[in-house]
Structure formats: structure tokens, C-alpha cells
Design a protein around this nucleic acid. Structure first.
Lengths: 213, 213
DNA sequence: CGCACATCGTGAACAGCGTTCAAAAACCTC
DNA sequence: GAGGTTTTTGAACGCTGTTCACGATGTGCG
């Protein structure tokens, strides 16, 4: 008819993302996509192998957008001449919080998706996009004058990311909706504060992970 | 027949947990439960309102077991006369890691379940069980000689929990299966180390969560 | 014991889902 | 326009959660 294959694919992805965002994973239905895109069910399976394929593609877009958000937050601070480590880390965390808030259904769906398909979905692509974020965090830490070797910086960056991620996801699974934002902000501020203080003290962090048997 | 209602319910829950643990949420099917429990599909709906109801009940058992695991880890250390904060926090984190490893399907299913049903499932019961864990962490912090007021201790405990939780969940969604355990252990050790150092420095942690607009 | 009533277990039936695939339509190429 | 190729279609299949009339099973009472 009018649109070529790629264009229709983009439209399907846009529709799929809205569906995911509004109703979570359960809301991503082949028939709904087809109807809203003005194509038949079969055509959806012509463009993508699976509904999982559609979901994967949406997830890629989300990860890209998250990377852009993080880089933009850093660029913004750079433009304003802010180099304070705390402010930069808080800005990154804030960018993540805003990103999650802007994607209330599709981001949880991404997390649930990864949980459902353990390692079957080549994680290379996923991890590559996440590495971009780790790089940003690591570079902030590198500029903080903490005297960390590269390996420690790598662990520190990933630990920070995982922690913020945990705070946000635990926070949104918590009780009242009103207190969520407050609780998340406080925990993030606390985490960043403690983290910076801890790093400033220097010393080695290489302790074996083994715990009581 | 032979078993009374409650007993059959327990059997259903045991079967449901095995199903969840082996195949995740998708593996919890009414017909499978009925077949394995030797009852009819309708009877499942007689014992529980929904499949969600079954899942909720399984989740309660999991949370109880997690609480027991945490308390047991503390009791073990107490029995051995270990009062070092680092060791106690590492033991708690280790207990959580082992718990997640022991429930490779049902624990992710619990997390995904909470994500799917935002606040509809009265969170009171969930939160009450989690509060038990926060209490344990907070009491460890209280014994650490950190000079924290109660509110700060509360935030610190929840932040620690959320962070460890984030590390574990991010870790198991990562690339190679072999490196997962190592990466998780290293991040946890790093987090606990930095946290303790940061707390030891004292000072106030009350910074507004507001970031760059 | 017999009868009425309540309770409970049953599985066929329904609506909805992801996915497939023979056929139809559309599109090329000569 | 004919012949061949590609794309689109939607009916059909097997599976899912959930329901509900029906029959079985218990329970209380005269």
C-alpha cells in the first residue's frame, strides 16, 4: 500500500511501546497491535519472529533512550560548569529516576522480560548498552580524585548502578504511592553520600566475598 | 476423600512453588496443579480465588523463609561470638544471595508478580515481612557504634537492603552464568566496605534529593 | 433409617491468547 | 498481459484462565 516494511515496523514498535507502558507485559497482544497498526495478525509475525521479538526491539529502544538520558544529564552539567562528584552522581541517579517514571509500564516490562528469558536472548546487545552507562559513571568517578585503580573503578561504577537500580525498583514496589518518590530520593541521596565518603577514605576494598558457611 | 481442605491447600502450594521454581511464572498453570495434586481444575479455584491467589500464597511462604534465613544467619554469628559489623552485614547479604540461588524461579516470579500488580495486592502483608528484615539490618547498624539517629538508621538499613537487592538482581540478569557469582560477591563486598567506611566518617547525610532540573 | 438440605468436587464449555499456514492479493519482470 | 515471486491475510489450532450447572458427598433431624 503506502508504507514500506521498515516504516511499518517502526509503527508497530511505537504501538507496542505504548501498550507495554499502559498495561505492562500482559497488555502486549498480537491482535491489538495488528488492529491499531491497521495490519493483520499475520503481518506482525512477518515483521517480527515473535511477540518476544517485538518486546526485544522495544527494549532496545528503551535502553538507547536511557543511555541518551544519562549522557544528556552529564552534558547539561558540563555546560553549566558543574564538576562536583556528588552533584554529577546525583544528576545521573536523577536521570534514571525520571526515566523510570517516564516509562512506568515498559521499563518494568523490560526487567520482567529479562527475568523470564534468562540467557537465551543474546545478552551481548543488552550488556553493550548498559556498558555505556557504566562508562559514564566510571568516568565521573575517575574525575573525583579518589585514587582508584581501573578495576576498582569498574566495580564501583557497577555497584553504584546496581544499588541505584535496586533502590528505584524496590521503591516503586512499596506501599503508598505518595511516599515512594520521597523514599527513593532519600535513599539515593544517602547512598551517594555514603559512597563518596567511603571512597574518600581510600584504602583497599578487596575483600573476599565469602561469608559465614 | 482423605485429606481435609487445609492439607490439600498446602499440597497445592508446594506443587505451585516447584512449578514456579522450575519454569517461572509461565509455568504456573491451573491444569498442571490440578493434575499433580490429584484434584480437578475447579477445585483449585475452590481453594484459591485465582492463580494469582496461589501465587500470592507461595510468595508469602517465600518471604517467611527469607526472614527465617536472615534471622538464622544472625543467630549463627551470635552463637560464634562474632559481633563485627562487616561480618554481620556480609553474612546477611550472603544469606540473601543463597536464598535467591535456592529459589531460582520462584523468587524472580515474586518480583515479577509485584511488578505486575502494582498496589492492588494489599502491600501491608508484604511490607510487614520485609520490615522484619529491615529491623535486623537496623539492629546490626545500631550495634556498630556509628552514632546514627533512628531515622538515619532506618534509611541506612533500607538503602543497604535495596542496594544488595539491586546487585543480586542485576547480577543474575547479566551475561555469562559463571561470572555472575563472582561479580555479585565482589559488588556486595565493595558495597559493604564503602558503606561502613562512609558511616564511620560520621556527619550528616541529609541532602535534598533534588538534582539538576 | 429416610428425607431434605447444604456443601463440595467435577470437567465440559467459553472467551481469549500466541502462532501457523494455505490461499489470496499484490507486486515485479519480461 | 503472462508467469513467477513475494507479501498479506485471517481462519484454524492448541493452549490458557476461569466459570458454573450438575452430580456426589456429607449433615442434621424426625
Amino acid at each position: 500500500m503506502a508504507l514500506d516494511k521498515e516504516e511499518t515496523g517502526e509503527r508497530v514498535l511505537a504501538i507496542a511501546e505504548v501498550l507495554l507502558n499502559e498495561g505492562g507485559m500482559d497488555n502486549l497482544k498480537a491482535r491489538t497491535i495488528a488492529e491499531q497498526a491497521g495490519i493483520s495478525v499475520g503481518s506482525v509475525y512477518n515483521l517480527f519472529s515473535d511477540l518476544d521479538g517485538v518486546h526485544r526491539a522495544v527494549n532496545m529502544r528503551l535502553l538507547d533512550r536511557l543511555g541518551v538520558a544519562g549522557a544528556a544529564a552529564m552534558a547539561d552539567l558540563g555546560r553549566r560548569g558543574i564538576t562536583d562528584v556528588r552533584q554529577r552522581l546525583m544528576a545521573l541517579a536523577g536521570a534514571y529516576v525520571r526515566f523510570v517514571e517516564a516509562h512506568p509500564g515498559s521499563w518494568p516490562a523490560l526487567l520482567a522480560f529479562n527475568r523470564r528469558r534468562p540467557v537465551l536472548t543474546e545478552p551481548d546487545v543488552y550488556e553493550a548498552r548498559l556498558d555505556q552507562l557504566f562508562e559514564i559513571i566510571a568516568s565521573v568517578l575517575a574525575d573525583g580524585g579518589f585514587d582508584l585503580d581501573e578495576d576498582t573503578r569498574r566495580i564501583a561504577a557497577r555497584t553504584l548502578w546496581s544499588s541505584v537500580h535496586g533502590i528505584v525498583t524496590s521503591g516503586y514496589a512499596a506501599r503508598s504511592v505518595r511516599r515512594q518518590a520521597d523514599e527513593i530520593d532519600r535513599q539515593i541521596a544517602f547512598l551517594v553520600g555514603v559512597f563518596i565518603r567511603g571512597l574518600e577514605r581510600g584504602g583497599t576494598f578487596a575483600h573476599a566475598g565469602k561469608t559465614a558457611s
